[in-house]
Simulated scan of single mutants.
Amino acid sequence: MNALQPDNRIACHECDLLMQRPQIQGDQVVNCPRCGSRLISSHPNSAERSLALALAGLILLLPANLFPVLTLEVLGRQQEQTIFSSAMVLYRDGLALVALAVLLFAILVPLCKLLLLTYLSGALHLRRRWPLLPLAMRSYQHLDQWGMLEVYLIAVLVSVVKLVDIADVHPGLGLYSLGALIAVTALSSSQLDPDLFWHQIADLGDPVERVETGHE
Rank of each mutant, 00 (worst) to 15 (best):
D16C: 06
G179F: 06
A47K: 01
H43L: 14
F67W: 10
N2L: 05
V69D: 02
L173Y: 11
E14M: 05
L60G: 01
S188K: 06
P68W: 11
V158D: 13
L75N: 15
T185Y: 11
V184G: 02
A167L: 10
L62I: 14
L62A: 11
A202Q: 06
R38F: 04
R38L: 09
D195V: 02
S85L: 07
N31E: 14
T213L: 03
E48G: 03
L120D: 01
I24H: 01
V151E: 11
L100A: 13
Q28M: 14
N31L: 15
F197M: 05
P68R: 08
L4M: 13
L103D: 02
A52E: 08
M88A: 09
L111Y: 11
D203V: 11
P33N: 07
A52W: 01
S121A: 14
Y140P: 05
G76Q: 09
M19A: 01
H170S: 13
V169C: 07
R21T: 02
W130C: 05
C15V: 03
Q141L: 15
L175H: 00
D7R: 12
L135I: 14
L62F: 13
M137R: 04
L153H: 07
E14F: 04
L133A: 03
L126Q: 08
A52L: 07
L196S: 03
V98G: 14
L60H: 02
L108F: 15
S190A: 15
L132A: 12
R21L: 01
Y176R: 11
L108K: 06
G205E: 06
L196A: 04
P22G: 00
T82Y: 10
V164E: 11
A11E: 11
Q141G: 08
V102S: 00
I40R: 02
T118Y: 05
P68S: 09
D7A: 04
Y140I: 02
L55Q: 09
S37D: 10
V102E: 03
V109T: 00
L58F: 09
P131V: 00
S189C: 14
R138A: 04
E14T: 08
N8D: 15
G94F: 11
L181W: 07
G174R: 04
N65G: 09
C12A: 05
Q78F: 09
L104I: 07
Q81L: 14
V211N: 08
R129Y: 06
C32A: 07
F197K: 03
P171R: 12
L60Q: 00
V109I: 07
T185N: 09
I166N: 12
H142D: 09
A96T: 14
L187K: 06
Y152I: 01
S190M: 15
E80D: 13
L108A: 10
R49D: 11
L153T: 00
G205M: 01
L173M: 12
D27N: 07
R92A: 11
V109H: 05
A186L: 15
E209L: 02
R21Y: 03
R127Y: 10
Q81C: 06
I201W: 02
L120R: 02
Q141E: 14
R77Q: 13
A167W: 12
Q25T: 15
V184T: 04
L143F: 09
E80A: 12
H215N: 10
A136K: 01
S189H: 13
F105T: 00
V109M: 03
M137T: 06
E80M: 10
S37M: 09
D203G: 12
I201Q: 00
A123P: 02
L75S: 15
L51V: 04
L163E: 01
G205C: 06
V158G: 10
